[in-house]
Simulated scan of single mutants.
Amino acid sequence: MNETLLEGNGSRVPIEILWYHHDLSRHAAEALLLSNGTDGSYLLRNSNEGEGSLALSVRAKDSVKHFHVTRKDNGYSFGFNEYPTLQHFVIHFANQPLLGSDAGTLMVLKSPYPWRVEEPSIYESVRVHTAIQTGRTENDLVPTAPSLGTKEGYLTKQGAFVKNWKQRWFTLNRYELKYFKDKGSEEPIRTVDLKACSAVQFDYSQERVNCFCLVFPERTFYLCAKTGVEADEWIKILRWKLSQISKGR
């Protein structure tokens, strides 16, 4: 492999590594992989751990794990092992599980996430394909794929007046959070404008678990997800939306 090198934050990376995303942040990497990747999608980026330090971000089902990779004169080191090129590193882990956490999450590198897609600071205009599969390249991008920063799924919502809980189908697109009676409903019960939201945070005041709330001047919405991971994903993407709104003011 011809190692024509790129410079970035002190890290030198082969130009053939089309999934090297330079200064993509940890949070943005999570947003990219969760919104548009699949289980086993991965990308390489610079790490804030110091010069010559890289991070490999890998999607494992509904979460993203991050691993430190260090550039050295004779190749790349990961844990106790060293590899002459990043391609050797990927090939090695594509053939055996990559241990992702103390909880024992196992991941295999399957689908490189290409950097040759539009990735402006405001991710609403990013268009990338939603089904990156092994063997596909950046030339297989689907131009009409959903924009980054969208999310949907069932959440349990507390009523405004009668404090009972009902399952609703939620969709997040741009700065609008809509909820429907169920997934097949055409008209939303309500559309919530996130531009009026002041905070999104975990909520521990309910008897239920995996709950979070959205704080508005006139009302606080209480929502619960099926799992803590799912609740964390909703919170992260909603907080990211609020940060983008704040930057635009």
Rank of each mutant, 00 (worst) to 15 (best):
L98G: 02
R59P: 00
I91T: 15
Q96W: 00
R127Q: 11
R59E: 01
S41G: 03
L43P: 00
A55W: 00
V58E: 03
L43T: 02
P97W: 11
G40L: 11
G79E: 14
D62N: 13
G75C: 06
L109G: 04
L54V: 04
F89P: 00
S121K: 14
M107P: 02
T85Y: 07
S57F: 03
S41A: 11
R127P: 02
L33P: 02
T70W: 01
V58Q: 07
A94I: 01
R45W: 01
H68N: 12
E51I: 12
T70V: 10
N36I: 00
P120Y: 03
D73I: 01
E30V: 04
R71L: 03
V64A: 07
A55I: 01
F78P: 04
L44Y: 02
S77Y: 05
K65M: 01
A103I: 07
L32A: 09
S101P: 09
D62H: 10
R59T: 01
V108F: 12
A60N: 07
I122N: 11
N46L: 11
T70A: 03
Y83R: 04
E82C: 09
A29N: 05
L33W: 03
I122Y: 09
V69E: 09
V108R: 14
N95I: 04
L98K: 02
K110T: 14
L43K: 02
N48H: 13
T105V: 12
E119S: 13
H66F: 13
G40N: 09
N36E: 03
T38F: 06
T85V: 07
N36K: 14
I122H: 10
R116M: 14
K61E: 13
K65D: 00
L34H: 00
N46F: 03
R127T: 11
N74L: 08
I122S: 10
T38W: 05
V64M: 06
F89T: 02
D39A: 08
Y42M: 09
K65V: 01
M107G: 06
G104E: 10
E51H: 07
L109R: 06
G100H: 06
I122A: 06
I91W: 12
S35L: 02
V117Y: 03
L56W: 03
K72N: 05
